[in-house]
Design a binder for these strands. Structure first.
Lengths: 334, 334
DNA sequence: GTCAATTGAGAGAACGTTTACTCAGGAAAG
DNA sequence: CTTTCCTGAGTAAACGTTCTCTCAATTGAC
């Protein structure tokens, strides 16, 4: 093991004080060009690296941002995380990524850990409506969750409008609209369901028995089609249009419809949500509501940076990012 | 903002010295039961959280592990990262995840940042053969890369044997074997290619013109089929068996074969590598060589923990994790 | 030549911990 | 009643930085 070289050694080598070296490194304060050269070359020569722990302790700032994400394995979330990490890195921050597995308990634990690590800020991508982040006094930006607290920064896709648009499209292209969702308390889900029913209402369609709630919450989307199977079988409409709460459910629905011999997209149309990779990989490719992950992540990072620059500003901001309908092969052309 | 409470306030509240509080917190040294209760209740009451920056500075240990990953958006990598993060968390470590985008430069930068953050260890999931990690004196565990240094800890799937098995299976079920790979210097790729050719050799099959190297390295696997298209068109064998370097390429190959009207799996067989989600989502589902991501991650974490427990031990370990062939619908039964 | 202003740089406190020393007081042993 | 030993707890240094005070030396104005 090479020895870790500290600012003190640099000072010794250059025959100056520790303070002077610090000044040169941070280009802060006064020093002669000569000193500057000496210090810089000593740094290069020794491979000195500033100890962020010490800096953090002194400045009360770790330069680390925590990112809480339900499941990094999920294509939508990983896309957001990746972009967040990129944007943060550009701003000089490192990111600690934490998988919450959608568990409120894990979320609370990680929040504690992050807070101990003195992270400067936290980005929470989550759908859990629990409230344990309330007693953490670190700037937080929420992606896709809208917690019930006074001032907060929230970035969210327009789930309501996306669902509305999808449902309207199904109706417009001649299908009788249904929705398949999952059992969850997520706010995003609620918004999407609301959008679905509002579209129905607008078209004065009877809204009874139009929703199926899948009970399996896991990602093991295959072989779990029995619920969907009976639901679809029992629909008497000739042309069935299904809006699903996400692309995984859309995939399940697609497989089920194929199993039942439905003609897609002539008699059976599907629109998913998220525009996750799975929608492009499936055969036929699934139409979906695109969430702009890049913009979600960039906006979140940007707002967090603003908050960090001026922590005393309450900043009660809610930014909605528009979604758009991506038409693929489970829908008819308009 | 609530004020950050430090060990000093706890000491004041309890009317004891800072040292005593520290002793209670770490259950280290002597103190009376009475003191213990006092301190504990003060901690609970104030919501005191130990400052990991200060602890890290003092103990020269950050309790953070850096994870370098080419692309967290890739199903295989994200699975490994997720499991690593879980295992590390169980051991009391947080993880800083860094996307290298397969760029050696980014990798070097992140390595520098991680080293500044005083991470206790690094897990590198990478295929880049560059060597800039040499001047970092932090314990490193490599997943799937075998760097040319003296003592190192390497965990790798058995790429060679996996490829061998896949190719043998194609031959055994009556197909003339070909390989489609991508342009990369990755060691894993080399091993897989070697396995392919060794299988061919064992069966005394002429090895000329059996490989296509795709030039597009991006993940945009759709609409890039032209290279694959002409390659497959030019094969005169009645029964074509293709081993692909990964599942994305397998997917491209599958789409191309379908476009050409090939009968799968009767006249055209495909085996991919990684057993990534895409292989299960595609229609038909693609047979693939399964990499045991959980074991890869767990073993890596375990070995890193061992190394951290005894840093002076050189530990030159190479652990190979067996792969296995998952038969789906792009292969004939044996 | 005097005084003021500027420049370069050192001393030392502070950030929040841990831990090696130290020591007072009481119990046990003789 | 000494002496020894243990228990509980305080003191202060150290970890690697930054940054506020200093202050000496140089420069420049008059």
């Amino acid at each position: 093991m090479k020895e870790q070289v500290s600012i003190k050694q640099i000072a010794e080598i250059c025959g100056v004080s520790v303070a002077t070296v610090s000044r040169v490194i941070n280009d802060n304060g006064r020093f002669s060009e000569e000193t500057r050269q000496k210090v810089l070359s000593a740094i290069k020569q020794t491979g000195y690296k500033p100890n962020k722990l010490a800096i953090g302790l002194r400045k009360n700032k770790s330069n680390i941002i925590g990112i809480l994400v339900p499941d990094i394995t999920n294509g939508f979330y990983s896309a957001v995380v990746k972009k967040c990490e990129q944007a943060l890195s550009k701003n000089g921050y490192s990111s600690i990524v934490c998988n919450t597995d959608r568990s409120a308990e894990k979320e609370a634990n990680y929040l504690q850990t992050l807070s101990e690590h003195m992270v400067d800020g936290i980005i929470i991508i989550s759908t859990n409506p629990s409230d344990h982040y309330l007693n953490v006094n670190i700037p937080i930006v929420f992606i896709d969750r809208n917690p019930d607290i006074e001032s907060k920064i929230v970035i969210t896709s327009d789930h309501y409008y996306g669902a509305l648009e999808a449902t309207n499209y199904l109706i417009k292209t001649g299908f009788s609209p249904y929705i398949i969702t999952t059992k969850t308390k997520a706010i995003t889900t609620k918004e999407r369901v609301r959008g679905f029913y509002d579209a129905i209402k607008q078209h004065k369609i009877d809204s009874t028995d139009r929703m199926l709630t899948l009970h399996s919450t896991s990602n093991e989307f295959l072989d779990k089609n029995t619920e969907a199977l009976t639901f679809i079988k029992n629909i008497s409409d000739k042309k069935i249009g299904i809006f699903t709460i996400n692309d995984n459910v859309a995939y399940i629905t697609l497989q089920t419809a194929l199993k039942l011999g439905k003609k897609i997209p002539d008699d059976f149309s599907i629109i998913g949500f998220d525009d996750a990779p799975i929608s492009k990989i499936a055969t036929p490719q699934i139409s979906s509501i695109h969430q702009n992950t890049d913009e979600l992540a960039e906006k979140a990072t940007q707002l967090l940076m603003e908050k960090l620059a001026d922590p005393d500003n309450p900043m009660n901001v809610t930014k909605t990012i528009p979604t758009n309908l991506i038409l693929r092969n489970t829908t008819l052309p308009s």
